[in-house]
Amino acid sequence: MQEYMTSGVQLGLMVNPQNQEIEIYRQGQLREVRSLPTQFPGEAVLPGFMLQIDRFVED
C-alpha cells in the first residue's frame, strides 16, 4: 500500500478477511483499521460512493 500512496493515490482500502478488518489509507494520515461489518463512504475522492463490507464466513 505504501507504494500506491507514494505514487499519489489519495485513498486506499485493504480488506483482511482473516482478521475481519478493513484498513483505510489516506494521504498524509495514519492508517485506520475498522472491524467488520462496516460501511465506508468514498469521501471527497469518490463522492456518492458507499461500500458495505460484511463479515466473511468460512464455507
Rank of each mutant, 00 (worst) to 15 (best):
N19H: 15
V45L: 04
Q52L: 10
F56D: 09
G12T: 08
R26C: 01
P47E: 12
V15R: 10
I24H: 00
G42V: 05
E32M: 00
M50E: 07
D54N: 09
E43V: 10
E23W: 06
L51A: 03
M5K: 02
I53D: 02
P47W: 09
E43N: 15
V15Y: 10
G28H: 05
L30R: 01
Q27H: 10
P17R: 15
S35N: 08
N16Q: 07
V9W: 03
N16G: 05
R26D: 00
L11G: 10
F56W: 12
I22Q: 00
V9Y: 05
Q39G: 08
V45N: 02
R31I: 04
A44V: 09
G8N: 03
L13V: 06
E58F: 14
I53R: 02
P17Y: 14
M1I: 13
M1C: 14
M5A: 03
R34Q: 06
Q20T: 11
V33W: 03
G42C: 06
V57R: 11
Q20Y: 10
G28L: 04
S7R: 12
I24N: 00
E23T: 04
D59N: 15
E21L: 06
F49N: 06
L11K: 14
V45W: 04
V33H: 04
G12S: 09
E32F: 00
Y25I: 03
E3K: 13
I24C: 00
D59Y: 15
V15E: 08
Q52G: 12
Q52K: 09
M14T: 14
Y4S: 09
L11W: 14
D54E: 08
R34F: 02
N16Y: 07
Y4H: 13
G8I: 04
A44G: 08
P37A: 02
L46M: 09
R55S: 12
I24S: 00
V33I: 13
M14C: 13
L36E: 01
F56I: 12
Q18Y: 10
P17C: 11
I24L: 00
V57N: 11
E21R: 09
T6Y: 11
Q10I: 08
L13Y: 06
E23H: 09
E58Q: 15
M5P: 01
F56R: 12
I53V: 09
M5D: 02
Y25M: 06
M5N: 03
Q18G: 13
E23Q: 08
Q29M: 06
G12R: 06
A44D: 09
V57W: 07
M50G: 04
I22T: 03
P37F: 00
P47L: 08
E43L: 13
G48D: 03
E21Q: 13
N16F: 05
